[in-house]
């Protein structure tokens, strides 16, 4: 009861062919591409729309093909940066801290928006009886993604400072996953109140995607540092320089640049450094989100 040798060879051959054909379709060439991603704080379609002109601009400035990979999970962006699957990422303050830890401190934040130095979160509700944070007791509440800075960490930190423990004092805590989803939750009554980043809120109001008569802001957090563009630490320093310059060169007076900046909801980009985010790291420890 054994397979004869020629047949065994044939089997092996077939297996090898099968494996080879499976392996011979790797994704993309390694070098000539800058792989970019962003934390999915808004719908992935929206992220792609926002990024398209910026991607073209970066391609022109660096001379390297830019590929944007949309994802739907915050942690995956951090993980991908750490495992070198992406080179450049749009991170929130807290995801940057996570990336810093995951890469043993090698991830480098290069630029942030001017607005990110004084970022805030807005508490919103459609419930007439909620007028202050203290009214949230016993209500259902929607955060964004668990590892969002402006949709989870900082609001949680400030809630704790105000004497409210979300797990104990709220009837139910939901994680909508993204800022625009939080607005949808609250507008639909799926959650009594929620919190999201001020920039997305303003945009939704501007675009009339939310009815400010129905959903209103009833509290705003004190300012903190948020978003930045981060590169993995072992990227070619020349390329890092080029990228940083490209961002800093964006000038609102230039109509082409103006469109890019508008889509990024930035007045302009300014340099940033790791230390800017130490406050967030402390807050994360205090709120129990970092162990």
């Amino acid at each position: 009861m054994s397979i004869s040798t020629p047949r065994r060879l044939a089997l092996k051959g077939a297996l090898a062919c099968a494996l080879a054909s499976a392996v011979s379709f790797p994704a993309f060439a390694e070098d000539a591409v800058l792989r970019v991603s962003a934390i999915p704080d808004e719908a992935p379609t929206e992220l792609q729309r926002k990024f398209a002109p910026l991607g073209k601009y970066l391609e022109a400035q660096t001379g390297i093909k830019v590929v944007f990979t949309p994802v739907s999970d915050y942690a995956a962006v951090v993980e991908s940066l750490a495992s070198k699957k992406i080179d450049l990422a749009w991170l929130g303050g807290f995801t940057f801290i996570q990336a810093k830890i995951r890469t043993n401190g090698t991830a480098i934040p290069i630029v942030q928006r001017e607005e990110d130095a004084r970022f805030t979160s807005r508490f919103i509700t459609a419930d007439a009886s909620i007028k202050a944070l203290s009214d949230l007791k016993g209500k259902t509440f929607a955060f964004g993604a668990p590892s969002s800075t402006s949709g989870s960490l900082m609001p949680r930190f400030f809630l704790l400072q105000a004497g409210l423990n979300p797990e104990k004092d709220f009837k139910n805590v939901a994680f909508s996953g993204a800022h625009d989803a939080t607005v949808a939750f609250v507008a639909a009554g799926k959650a009594d109140a929620g919190v999201l980043n001020a920039s997305v809120w303003d945009k939704l109001v501007e675009q009339k995607k939310v009815d400010p008569d129905k959903v209103r802001v009833f509290a705003t957090t004190p300012p903190y540092f948020d978003y930045n563009w981060t590169v993995r630490g072992d990227l070619d320093p020349v390329l890092i320089r080029k990228l940083t310059d490209a961002f800093l060169k964006l000038d609102p007076a230039n109509p082409e640049h103006k469109e890019i900046l508008a889509l990024q909801r930035a007045a302009k980009f300014i340099p940033t450094k790791k230390e800017n985010y130490d406050g967030i790291e402390k807050a994360a420890h205090a709120a129990g989100l970092l162990k």
Partner: peptide, 21 residues
């Protein structure tokens, strides 16, 4: 998707890289 139980815990902790939890 917000229906309570172990799933919510897992989602939360995995998002925060709390692998032990």
């Amino acid at each position: 998707v917000g229906a309570g139980g172990l799933g919510q815990l897992l989602y939360f902790e995995l998002s925060l890289f709390h692998h032990a939890q």
